[in-house]
Design a protein around this nucleic acid. Sequence first.
DNA 1: CTGTTAGCGCATTCAG
DNA 2: CTGAATGCGCTAACAG
Lengths: 343, 343
Amino acid sequence: MSAPPLRKRPTQDDVARAAGVSQTVVSLVLNDRAAASISPETRQRVLAAIDDLQYVPDGAARGLRTRKTLIVASLIPDITNPFYPAFERGIQDVADGRGYDLIAYNTDGQREKELRCLRSLQRTRVDGVIATPFQLTADDFAPLIGGGVPVVVFGELVTAGPGSPFDSVFLDDAAAAAELVGYLIDRDYLPLAMIAASAEHLRREGRATAYQRVLAERVPTQAPLLARGDDPTEAGGYAAMRALLAGPTRPRAVFAANDMMAMGAMVAIREAALCVPDDIAVAGFDDITVARLLNPPLTTVAQFPERLGRQAAAMLFARLDGSVTGAGQRVEMPYELMIRESA
Amino acid sequence: MSAPPLRKRPTQDDVARAAGVSQTVVSLVLNDRAAASISPETRQRVLAAIDDLQYVPDGAARGLRTRKTLIVASLIPDITNPFYPAFERGIQDVADGRGYDLIAYNTDGQREKELRCLRSLQRTRVDGVIATPFQLTADDFAPLIGGGVPVVVFGELVTAGPGSPFDSVFLDDAAAAAELVGYLIDRDYLPLAMIAASAEHLRREGRATAYQRVLAERVPTQAPLLARGDDPTEAGGYAAMRALLAGPTRPRAVFAANDMMAMGAMVAIREAALCVPDDIAVAGFDDITVARLLNPPLTTVAQFPERLGRQAAAMLFARLDGSVTGAGQRVEMPYELMIRESA
DNA sequence: CTGTTAGCGCATTCAG
DNA sequence: CTGAATGCGCTAACAG
């Protein structure tokens, strides 16, 4: 094969002609309508013709008619943060099982990009959406919801009160962070610092707030040591840790808002010829796959992203097949402290 | 907002009515047809109506007419291997710039899943495909190519000879592996072992072959020490390394077919109370983001996946906008040895 | 410069 | 049990 023949794709009409039936019949056997039973023998003829012509239904045409595209969309900040591929994978696996395709969008947590994705979603007419919004509010989703497209949110939508139409899967970030901070204090890792991304990522502020609260409660003598990196990435963690090391008080331990930042921090610590955890202990959040593989293995909070994705997808499909209707459901997922050697 | 109003989405007809023009005019201003100029004032009226009604074109309907969906698809083995998110991100960023959406498929490198994805692609009628096939052959893509859908392959398609209609971006895996193996031998890391995934992942065999060839050439006295893990994952690397450690000859260094396997191997080595690189040196392949962040930082071969994705996407869009036609182009991408501390 | 008309491929009434 | 006719929302001739 080198010069592509470029023959037009066969349509139901072609199949019908080949099978000596009407196009309607082809549609009927394709959709297995129980109402109009097809004689088993014509059915076979049609199936044979389909196979013969390599007919594949046209999703666009079908979608135009049925208002269903068999596509769902997922909105995440950045596929490059290992937490999200796992999340996506969870979604994808259940979508796949339902015969759905998945369109993935990266928003980088920027409101402008998030909005652009939303617009894209409207154009492509997806059947459902799973979103991990950073800046979006409930109102931004109104056109989608108004159009009857179910939306499952990972985390909590800032403006979504009770009776909100959004399903959500979330975990108690603040409690998890508090527990981890408590553990670090128990181990006497003081002074205890925290590194986080710039505050505009409101979404993750629960962790920083928890840090400040627990610290104030349990170690009122220590002033909070909160360093900010630009992004919730390894680079952000590295920069924040450097700032911390250059500061007046060297922390005995650092709680990073996520594992990537923790990894960046570890690099900065090593570069300063210090040792983890003997000089400075490090803890993260997420338990991405590699956390366990680091040297030393990273103490962190496991979120089980793949399971989160599966749960979100399950809720979405429950809406899509009509088995759940009415007000949005909120499902809280478990987290787990993973105590390893880094702290 | 709690009870969704569920009003039907506005169509061009609605917009036309609101603007007091015909539906055609709406279509014309939307598509900026140079041919039929619209008077600037009606144009404004239409735009206002669009904005007012929050009209968004229906991709399915448009696609039915234009045979363009503004969707491209990417076929990768597993988004959970950090190499691929970066690759995807590269694709996504250029697709985004062109106003295209991206559907992502995970094939797990299994032929059956790969075929299923291909079928899905036909249904959803994507405009172009970027594929990282493991088991697929050129023939499997025939329906796509025959339908005029351009396909860019990452790597080389086993059966694609000269004059093949496939564009491809690839790098000289074997040369890169040979170079790395050569380096390890130069450093006297002998005996030198390799760990790789089971041989059915033909795609990666270039690396194992290079290992065997260079070893045979330069160290004829050492028998090849090739251990197989089931999957090209951290778990596979761990298992293979364990097997190696349980074997009769303990290697002085291990070359892993990819970074995830290398990380698994490092864990196994540490568990055996051995030290990297003093007892056993470790090298990988890919240079995923975390490779540099490991302790010790991983010596590996950089593939620059994001750049690969961008390149593949660029070639795809060159086909889509007609700026490139004819036989498939093959673009070889550079790799780079990243010598760090693990070997 | 703008309106009329005709399908794209399919699911779905309604007749036979 | 099967076929003919209709329209989903849109673009693209073709008239006016």
